[in-house]
Structure formats: structure tokens, C-alpha cells
């Protein structure tokens, strides 16, 4: 059976034409949570931008749900169910919480039923947002913004969820809450590609993981294997043997 999401030899670059990520091969299957780990500047966010069509592929192919989407525009990818929660949550700061959530369901705008139901589900998942529904999203705390970002993505009824550093700039308690939600989504069978700096948290919830360094995949395997390997620790804290 073909994979749900397949990247074959994908390279991508910004204006400078020097590839930031090179020859990325990656698959994601139904019901699976794959974590992409790596330090800063390893190319994690570039990978996600390429996946969501904000950055063109220099080479390689991206296939999603049996279709080649290498050249699709961002909104077409969203319509096909590939939903990204961007790094830093990217609130539409001047719009209310409810409007942010509604816009999450933009691709289903012709089905009012579905939107209403989705909204109810999100409010059930995050009761806090119901209290703040008419408040401007930019005035929320970091944790509440994270809820809006996740809720907004769920409104789109994703077939695959792409999470870009959900722990970005959040207090530990909020990070723990966020990962609890991620775990719950995984248990419901939502396929997730999780880009994360917080390796231990990510490996806790992931089935498989990849380690990205300098734009290339340097290690991959099951979450259990990787949490034992030195590769991960090195990518973050440097070689333990380095002279001081």
C-alpha cells in the first residue's frame, strides 16, 4: 500500500540558490506520528515550508494521498487535507478568537453544518477558548494562542497534521498541555508530522523520528531507538567529549 505522504529526494532553497535542505526522503503512514528533530538552522522549518508549498522544490517529488502535489499552490494543499500549524502560532492578531477558528474551516466554507460542528468540537476540546471567543487573538497568552492554532488546524479536518515546533516559546506547563493534546490526537488516529526542538517530549509521543542536521537526514529510526542514541544529544548539546 502506498504511503499517505511521501517525499522523494526533496531539495529546496531560498533566493540564494544554495539548498537549505538536501535529498530529503520521508514517508508518513496512516495513524502514524513521525517526529523531525534537529537544532536551530538544521532546516526543519524549511522542510515544512516546502511541504506546504510556500517554498518551491528545487528537485524531488512530494506525493500526498496518492496525488503528486510537488507543484501545487499552498491553498490547494490545504484543500487536499495537508494542514500546517505554523511556528510561533501566527495568530491573525486583529481578528477575534472565533474568527480565527472559523477561518481554519475556510476550505469547508460551503458546508455550514460541518463548520458549526467543528467549532463545537474545538470549544469542547479547549473550553477556555469559548470564554474568550470574542477577544482579539493577539491579546491572548501564549498557551491560549497555541490552543487557537491547534483548534484552527482541526477545523480544516486534516488528513495529515504538520506541527511546527508546538513548544516554541512556551512555559513548561503549557508545553505539557500541548503535548497531551498531541498525544490525544495520535490516539484518535490522526497522522502527524511533528517538527520539534524539544527532543525528549517529541520522542515520547512519536512512533518514528528523524534527525536533521545541516539540511540533511543524519539519523532515523523508531522513537525508542533514537532516544537511546547519542546522535540526538549531540545535535543539541554538542559532543560530550569536547574540550572546555
Amino acid at each position: 500500500m502506498p504511503h499517505l505522504l511521501t517525499l522523494t529526494n526533496v531539495s529546496a532553497a531560498y533566493a540564494s540558490a544554495v539548498p537549505v535542505i538536501r535529498d530529503i526522503n520521508l514517508t508518513l503512514d496512516a495513524g502514524e506520528l513521525v517526529a523531525v528533530l534537529g537544532g536551530n538552522g538544521a532546516g526543519k522549518s524549511t522542510l515544512l515550508r516546502t511541504l506546504s508549498g510556500l517554498l518551491p522544490c528545487l528537485t524531488g517529488r512530494v506525493e500526498f494521498a496518492g496525488a503528486d502535489i510537488t507543484r501545487s499552490a499552498p491553498h490547494q494543499r490545504v484543500e487536499s487535507g495537508l494542514i500546517q500549524v505554523p511556528e510561533g502560532r501566527q495568530m491573525l492578531a486583529g481578528l477575534s478568537v472565533e474568527e480565527n477558528l472559523l477561518l481554519g474551516g475556510y476550505v469547508h466554507r460551503r458546508h455550514a453544518e460541518q463548520i458549526a460542528q467543528g467549532l463545537a468540537e474545538v470549544y469542547e476540546l479547549f473550553p477556555r477558548l469559548l470564554e474568550r471567543r470574542s477577544q482579539a487573538a493577539g491579546l491572548l497568552s501564549g498557551g491560549e494562542q497555541q490552543m487557537v492554532a491547534l483548534g484552527r488546524a482541526l477545523m480544516a479536518k486534516p488528513k495529515v497534521l504538520l506541527l511546527d515546533e508546538p513548544s516554541f516559546g512556551l512555559a513548561p506547563l503549557v508545553v505539557a498541555d500541548t503535548f497531551a493534546v498531541i498525544r490525544r490526537l495520535r490516539e484518535q488516529g490522526m497522522p502527524i508530522l511533528l517538527i520539534e526542538q524539544n527532543a525528549r517530549k517529541a520522542l515520547d509521543v512519536a512512533d518514528r523520528a528523524l534527525v536533521l542536521r545541516a539540511g540533511q537526514i543524519v539519523a532515523s529510526g523508531s522513537a525508542a531507538e533514537l532516544s537511546r542514541s547519542d546522535e540526538v544529544k549531540q545535535s543539541y548539546l554538542g559532543q560530550a567529549t569536547s574540550p572546555i
Binding site: S52, L54, A73, P74, H75, V78, E79, Q84, P86, Q90, M91, L92, A93, G94, L95, L103, G104, Y106, V107, R152, A156
Partner: peptide
């Protein structure tokens, strides 16, 4: 507000 986010929402 944010054209990039808008396009990630399918606009």
C-alpha cells in the same frame, strides 16, 4: 493581517 497564515488556512 498575515497573508502567509491566510494561505496556510487555504485562502
Amino acid at each position: 493581517q498575515n497573508p502567509l497564515t491566510a494561505s496556510l488556512l487555504g485562502v
